[in-house]
Design a protein around this nucleic acid. Structure first.
Lengths: 213, 213
DNA sequence: GTCTATAATGTGATAGAC
DNA sequence: GTCTATCACATTATAGAC
């Protein structure tokens, strides 16, 4: 009946400005959370006027939604890569390494996620309950299989994943504290190397079956 | 010269109202961070009018400052209790247990702290750099001594403390996610028991010297 | 000492100019 | 299609009533 909806052309300037806004919003939302962030501040960081920003994203929530949608995909990628057919120890070890690298290279994304969690995840609870839960269930099953085969110490696979999340993301979310405690000497760029070494030791020894020790 | 400053009498009603406000502020700040929290909301939770609240705390920042000051003391208590003269393993084990109990019993305090960290700790950076750092330095030395004595696997004491913080606080700060992933079955009150068992296993095996294994 | 009316500013959103 | 002047309301804070 109707002619196909004219695919509204996305101009180059539209794409560019949207990217500018999302980049600025990531900066501000990750620091102050959804309610603490102001459109004004986002606009300033993006280098445009507040009303101009609102032309591209008519609502503050739209910006946040877009950000969270893109985030969860990249955020879960490291876990998704954990391969059932690989060697359990090297799979877990590289999962930890990838996750720590994300904390190092994308701390704002980590803080954005943490902020949403702290607030009770009101805007992404559905994604958490479906996409994230499904992925974790799947990988927990893989871990259990490895344990059944005696390749891994028998332990709770869910809490294992939680502890990997917690320890790695800590270096992004609590970065100020980490650097303050380590001081100028050991709080520099080397802190991620130290963390990597420590975490590998913590998890590997904790996971090594007694038959292997 | 001057007569001693008249110790302005703190009436019962003053104390009561201040406690009400601080209780409400904890609730709101822990969910939305400093900027995301509004006096209006705090007043509503506290059951009083906004201007009335501002009579007892003339500035929003005053409320937050008071909250943070009290927080850091109780927050570091578990670590402070770690006793140099005790048995390394039971000391660490009970430290982890105490910390996990705090996450269970005082999740709002945990989230309040996390919120401040995410924002770069602008209002408590000094306390972090002095009080917290000093305590951690002191306890790191204790851990190192234990390692020197061969009672503990040699590892980085700072990152060990970080990982205990991260894994335990995770159950308060990311509670929504934990419960969503565990589902109704294992996400109930038992989740803290499971976490305690898992964490003990993780850290103990990771810390057990090979000569003991 | 206790509390409220009201000011001053900040904030999200829109109607309309270019 | 792109952008800005402006509105309605929320928010912090104060001056002044009880």
């Amino acid at each position: 009946m109707h002619p196909p909806a004219k695919p509204r052309p996305i101009t180059r300037i539209q794409r560019e400005k949207q990217d500018l806004i999302l980049e600025a919003a990531l900066e501000v939302f990750s620091l102050h959370g959804f309610r603490g962030a102001t459109i004004d501040q986002i606009a300033e960081v993006a280098g445009m006027s507040k009303p101009n920003l609102l032309y591209y994203f008519p609502r503050k929530e739209e910006i946040h939604r877009r950000l969270m949608g893109e985030l969860l995909v990249t955020w879960l990628a490291p876990l998704r890569e954990m391969d059932e057919n690989g060697d359990p120890f090297s799979e877990i070890r590289s999962y930890i390494r990838r996750k720590l690298e994300m904390a190092r290279d994308f701390p704002r994304e980590s803080r954005l996620f943490a902020n949403e969690m702290l607030q009770g995840a009101p805007r992404i609870i559905e994604m958490i309950e479906v996409d994230l839960k499904n992925l974790v269930d799947e990988k927990a099953k893989v871990l259990l299989t490895w344990m059944d085969q005696g390749k891994l110490t028998r332990t709770d696979p869910y809490h294992l994943i939680f502890s990997i999340w917690a320890t790695t993301q800590h270096y992004a979310d609590f970065d100020v504290q980490v650097r303050a405690v380590l001081g100028p000497g050991r709080g520099g760029e080397g802190r991620f190397e130290d963390a990597a070494r420590y975490l590998e030791q913590l998890f590997m020894f904790g996971l090594t079956p007694k038959t292997r020790a």
